[in-house]
Simulated assay, not measured.
Amino acid sequence: MIADVRRTRAGLFAAFAGLGVTASFVPAVLPTAERDVDSDLSVAVPALFAGLLLGVLLSGALLRARPGRQVLMAGSALQALAIGGGASATNAGIFIAAAALAGLGFGLVEASGSIAAKAAVSGSATGLLSALTGTVAVCAAATPLLIAAGTGMPAALSALAVIPVVAIVLLIRAPDAAPAVRVSKPGGRILLRLLPFALALPLYVGVETVISGWSAVIPARALALDPGAAALGTSAFWALMAIGRFGAAALRTRGIRPGLILWISSLGAATLLGCAGALIAPAPGWALVPLAGSVIALAPSYGLVLGLALDRLSTAQSTAATGALVASGAVGGTMIPTSLLLAGHSPASGVTFAASAVLCLLVPALTALGRRRASGTVMASQK
C-alpha cells in the first residue's frame, strides 16, 4: 500500500514537472524556431492555448469514462510528442501543430493530475497540490536555461521530452485511484452569477499569455537578441511570477483582503504596461523594465479571481465550476493574442501593451460585480 502511494506520488511529480517544461518550452524556443524555419511563429502561442482549451474540455468526458491515471499518461505522452516535434520542426506548420498538441496534453494532465492528487492523500490535498504547483514553477523557470544552452542542437532540445516520458513509466506501475469521476453540475442560476468571473478570467489569461507566450520573442525583437539569450526572457517571466505570487500570499497572511490586492495589483500592472507601451519604440531596452514589473503585479490575479468565484460554492459545485472557469480562461489565452496578431500588431508593439493595460483594468471591475451577484445567490439560497 505504501509502495503504491509512493509510486503514485512519484508519477504525479514527474507529470507536473512535465507541465513546467511544456509551459515554457514553446515560448522559450520560439526565437530559435523562427530562425530555423525562417518564419514568424507568433501564432504558435494562441495555438498552444487552443490546445489547452480542447484538453480541458475533453478531460471531463475522458475522466468520466476512464481512470484518471490513464488520462494522465495520455496527456504526458502528447506533451512528449509535442516537445520532440517542436524541437525538430522543419517548417512553420509542424511547429504550430506541435504547440497545439502540447496544449492538448497540458490540459489533460492539469485536470486529471489535480484529481489524482486529491485521491493520493487521506486528508487535505492542499500540501501535495502546493508542492506539485511549485514543481511546475521550478521546471518552467529552469527549462529556458536548458534551451539557451541547447540552441542550435535540436536533438538536445528533444531530450526535454524525457520528463513526461518518465512520468508515464512511473504511472504505469501506479494503481488506479478510481475508475471514473462523478461531478455534480452547478445550477444555471449559479452559473449566471459566476458570469462576471467567467469574463474576467479570459481577460487576465489573455494578458498573461501575451507576456508569457511571447516572453522570449519580445526581448528578441526589441533588442535584436540572439535566440539563445532571448530564451532567458521566459525564465525571467516565471521567476517574476513566483515573486508576485509569494508576495500576494504574504499579504493574505497579514489579513489584506483579496479584493483589495486584486485592485492594487491590476492598477499597478495597467500603469506599468502603459509605460512599457510608451517606451517600446523610443527606448526598447528601458521598456522591458516596467514590463518586468507588470509581471510581478499581474501574478496574483488568476488565483484571486478564481478563489473569489469559488469561495461561496459547495465542494461539489466548485469541482464543476472550476472546469468551466478554467476553460473560459483558456479561451482568452487563445483569442486575445490571436486578435492582436490579426489586427497586425507585433508582440513587441506599443498597441499590444496598451491593449493589455486596458484589459487589466476590466478584471477587478468584473470581479467586484461578480462578488455582489454571488452574494445575492447565497442569500437567496439560504431563504
Rank of each mutant, 00 (worst) to 15 (best):
R371W: 04
Y302R: 01
G113H: 01
A316P: 01
S318G: 03
L53F: 14
L145E: 08
A14D: 04
V351S: 10
V305N: 01
R254C: 04
V183L: 10
K383N: 12
I168G: 02
A119G: 07
S39R: 15
L192K: 09
A80K: 06
S235A: 15
V109Y: 01
T377I: 11
W214Q: 14
L203Q: 05
A15E: 11
T234V: 14
Q317N: 05
T32Y: 14
D4A: 14
S294Q: 12
G259S: 12
T322A: 10
L104Y: 02
T22H: 04
L304F: 00
P27N: 12
G255E: 09
L146T: 12
G84L: 10
A155L: 15
A224C: 05
P219S: 12
L192H: 05
A281F: 09
G244T: 10
G370Y: 06
T322Q: 05
V56L: 15
F95Q: 11
L53V: 08
T367S: 09
T209S: 13
P175G: 04
R373H: 07
R9D: 01
A283V: 09
R64E: 15
L273K: 12
F16C: 00
V121H: 01
R182T: 15
G51N: 03
I163T: 10
L30R: 12
L361Q: 09
A77M: 11
V21I: 15
S356H: 10
L325T: 00
I261P: 05
A117C: 02
L104A: 02
S114C: 02
A80G: 09
G333A: 02
L157A: 06
P258K: 06
P290W: 12
A324Y: 07
T377C: 08
G86R: 08
R66A: 09
P164F: 06
S39Q: 14
A231S: 15
S76T: 06
Q317R: 02
A15H: 09
A324G: 07
S76L: 03
V26C: 11
V181E: 13
D36V: 12
L128V: 04
S314F: 03
A198R: 04
A380R: 15
S356C: 15
I336C: 03
A148Q: 13
K383T: 13
A167Q: 01
L279V: 08
A120D: 04
Y302T: 05
V45Y: 07
L157V: 08
V183D: 00
G376I: 06
G277T: 13
R371Q: 14
Q317C: 00
L72N: 12
T334Q: 03
V363Y: 05
A65T: 09
S328D: 03
A120G: 01
A74K: 01
L313A: 03
T143Y: 08
R245M: 12
V205F: 02
V136A: 00
L12Y: 02
L132H: 00
L223S: 07
A269S: 13
V45F: 07
D226M: 05
L194A: 01
G293K: 12
A236D: 12
A15M: 09
L41Q: 10
G107R: 03
G55H: 04
G105W: 07
T319N: 02
L19V: 07
A156E: 08
A74Q: 06
P175L: 08
A231E: 12
L101F: 07
A278K: 08
L191G: 01
